[in-house]
């Protein structure tokens, strides 16, 4: 059973179904965030529906590109034999 479950996430032939599933989940998560009741809290973002989705996406993109930029342009990434 475990084999089939993990295979679903690995095998190329399920790629299309995986995409559809992902889009469905994203839509549901976003929809749910608009439906829940919000209590007034200390920060402005708590009042914005979809804030988590927006912030998560932006954060991830920023982390990828800023880190790679620092790594490549900042001289952090070196050849593996650098210390030898």
């Amino acid at each position: 059973m475990m084999h089939r479950l993990i295979n679903f996430f690995g095998d190329e032939k399920y790629l299309k179904i995986r995409w559809r599933l992902l889009l469905l989940v994203l839509a549901l998560v976003l929809l749910a965030d608009f439906l829940v009741t919000r209590h007034p809290t200390a920060h402005f973002w708590d009042a914005i529906p979809g804030w988590g989705a927006f912030f998560g996406f932006i954060s991830c993109a920023v982390i990828i590109f800023v880190s790679k930029f620092i790594g490549k342009k900042g001289g952090i990434m070196k050849d593996e034999d650098y210390y030898d």
């Binding site: 998560v29 749910a32 988590g52 989705a53 998560g56």
Partner: peptide, 8 residues
Amino acid sequence: SLGILMFT
């Protein structure tokens, strides 16, 4: 939380 994670 799910929004943050799934959109990541």
